[in-house]
């Protein structure tokens, strides 16, 4: 290499090359959002937290009444699969809770998405629906739980209604925001290709709003799981939330923690499913 060549090499902006010692990003798009997978870091964090939990119980930093050992919680999980905890096995509790959350979620999708789209496209729908949604949205579900019980009784209906209300608002607002994310050029293009109002809705507005709707579904489903325990506070004998509440009444922290872990695992699994659906259904998201 001649001296001149070496000098040219030195003066070249270092950001363009990706040598292992150069920690500066290669291009702006690699800075934000950082495209590299964070899975390894997430796994490391999980393992570290589990180790910390194990150490805290093994060396009695915290008493078992306050924090049961991971092994004990795991034992409760395995036992719960075979023998009943209260009125049902763990499978029975989980099945009924799943039914409650999912049926409420499906009902919310079927009603909130059309409501949100309507709010996005129509002044009248926006005027009609905005006050009630904005009124109840910030209320904690526990605050209106007594009313729901008085109106819908103590059967499944009340529980599903409570979870449904928790899912509805974020979904409707996401669908409404999705309509707003349609580019005016896309609407104009469709109109100048002869689209009617109905065709515009079906072929342009709905698909354009889909990424936001899917995000809203993720958030709504999360809210659904959050509300599960509140929903199962009233007259339930079976259900994960009820199982946790019942165990806490008897200071059975091992069962409480086991129940929490199971609820979290279900919620996380459904979130992963939603993300998968997002990748399948809206591969163009963020690309155009």
């Amino acid at each position: 290499m001649s001296g001149e060549e070496a000098a040219a090499r030195r003066s070249r902006p270092r950001a363009a090359s990706a040598s292992p010692t150069d920690r500066r990003p290669a291009a702006a798009r690699n800075v934000f959002p950082d495209p590299r997978s964070a899975v390894a870091i997430s796994i490391a964090t999980t393992i570290a937290l589990l180790l910390l939990w194990w150490a805290a119980t093994e060396w009695r930093w915290i008493g078992p009444l306050f924090l049961p050992a991971p092994g004990v919680v795991f034992d409760r999980l395995v036992e719960g699969l075979a023998r009943p905890i209260g009125d049902a096995t763990l499978v029975g509790h989980a099945a009924l809770s799943l039914f409650r959350v999912l049926s409420a979620f499906v009902l919310a999708c079927l009603t909130a998405v059309p409501a949100g789209i309507a709010m996005g496209v129509s002044r009248v729908a926006r005027g009609l629906l905005d006050p009630p949604i904005e009124f109840y949205r910030p209320l904690p579900p526990l605050a209106y739980l007594p009313l729901v019980v008085i109106w819908f009784g103590i059967d499944e209906a009340a529980k599903i209604v409570l979870i449904y209300l928790a899912c509805f608002a974020p979904l409707a607002l996401a669908a409404r925001a999705g309509v707003r994310s349609v580019a005016p050029e896309q609407v104009n293009a469709a109109l100048s290709l002869g689209a009617t109002r109905a065709q515009l809705l079906r072929h342009v507005i709905l698909p354009a709003a889909l990424p936001e709707i899917l995000t809203g579904m993720r958030i709504g489903l999360g809210f659904g799981w959050t509300t599960l325990v509140a929903a199962e506070m009233v007259a339930a004998n079976v259900g994960l939330g009820q199982m946790v509440l019942n165990a806490s009444n008897f200071l059975r922290t091992d069962l409480v923690v086991m129940g929490i872990v199971v609820i979290a695992a279900f919620a996380y699994a459904f979130d992963l499913l939603m993300r998968l659906a997002e990748r399948r259904l809206v591969p163009w998201k963020g690309r155009m």
């Binding site: 050029e185 896309q186 293009a189 072929h203 698909p207 354009a208 889909l210 809206v282 163009w284 155009m288």
Partner: peptide
Amino acid sequence: RGVVFQKHALLPW
């Protein structure tokens, strides 16, 4: 009246 836009305005889906 067909329009060709400055920014293509295609439908990515």
